[in-house]
Amino acid sequence: MRFHSRKWVKPGDLNANETLFGGRVLAWIDEEAALYSIIQLENKKVVTKYMSEINFMSTAVKGDIIEIGIEVVKFGKTSLTLNCEVRNKMTRETIVTVDNIIMVNLGPDGKPAPHGKTKVEYVRDRLASED
């Protein structure tokens, strides 16, 4: 799994127990899944269709740095299925896992549209092929 982004846990990210609020983590996961999908599918119109069971395994506290990892499970005709792990950057302890996040590619009309992708592509490879 590749870890694409990091977040610094700040006071506004905490719950009443002074630990990382689960809803904040889910918002970060959803945003990361959307960004990853937009880049992979080369389309800004991508939406979250489904998130499987969310497994909270540990927590973080103010000042911790967490990282969000995403990997592709499969490419569908109009969708991309991902899984995600959020972990503490310093301790490597897993905070949350999500086995399946389904992102749907939309066409100009806002309806699901085929994306034509079948494998993970990296921007550096796309740029190299343009030379």
Rank of each mutant, 00 (worst) to 15 (best):
T59P: 09
A113R: 00
I70M: 10
N55T: 14
T81V: 13
G63N: 10
F21L: 02
R124M: 07
E93M: 04
Y50C: 12
N43E: 01
E53I: 05
P108Q: 10
G63M: 03
M1A: 11
T19C: 09
L35E: 08
L41G: 07
W8V: 13
M90G: 12
Q40G: 02
K74F: 09
R2N: 14
K7V: 03
S5R: 00
E32Y: 05
L14A: 02
R124W: 14
P108E: 10
S37I: 01
C84H: 05
R124I: 09
T78C: 14
G23E: 10
P112E: 03
G23M: 11
Y36H: 14
K44P: 15
I66P: 03
F56N: 03
I29C: 03
H115T: 13
G63L: 00
V86N: 06
N55W: 07
R126H: 12
K45S: 14
D13M: 06
R24H: 06
G116T: 04
I102G: 12
A113I: 09
K74E: 14
I66V: 03
T78I: 08
N17H: 08
I65R: 08
K77F: 14
P114I: 09
K10G: 09
V120A: 09
E53Y: 02
H115R: 06
N100G: 07
G22Y: 04
L26D: 01
G63C: 02
L82E: 10
Y36G: 05
R24D: 04
F75V: 05
K89P: 07
V123A: 14
V46K: 05
